[in-house]
């Protein structure tokens, strides 16, 4: 079932992407055609097929519990759009 304009707005909100009213229609069109394209895979019989989330069938490597990263705050925060007293600043957070 093709998407409706409200679906586009909902997904955009979920993705935290502002979308102007005049962008909704063209976005909707591309999304619907993309969904048509990816819908082609529904033709594949995947009964009983184990989903493949990783390229290799390997297990998670574990590292020793050791502190290896020194304090690099100044370097790591050098790109911050707004910072003060070692904190990143953002518009007031309301819980």
């Amino acid at each position: 079932m093709p998407l409706a304009p409200d679906d586009v707005r909902k997904v955009a909100r979920l993705a935290r992407l502002a979308i102007a009213d005049d962008e909704v229609a063209p976005t909707l069109d591309t999304l619907n055609r993309t969904l048509d394209l990816i819908g082609q895979m529904q033709a594949v019989d995947t009964t009983g097929v184990e989903p493949m989330s990783h390229a290799h069938d390997v297990s998670l490597r574990l590292r020793p519990d050791a502190v290896t990263e020194p304090d690099c705050r100044d370097a790591l925060m050098a790109n911050a759009p707004a910072a003060e007293r070692g904190l990143f600043l953002v518009p007031r957070v309301i819980e």
Binding site: I38, V49, P51, M52, S53
Partner: peptide, 14 residues
């Protein structure tokens, strides 16, 4: 319908 299916198709391809 989408993500899980795609991962299954991925295994078929492999």
């Amino acid at each position: 319908a989408y993500y899980l299916k795609a991962q299954q198709v991925r295994r078929r391809i492999a």
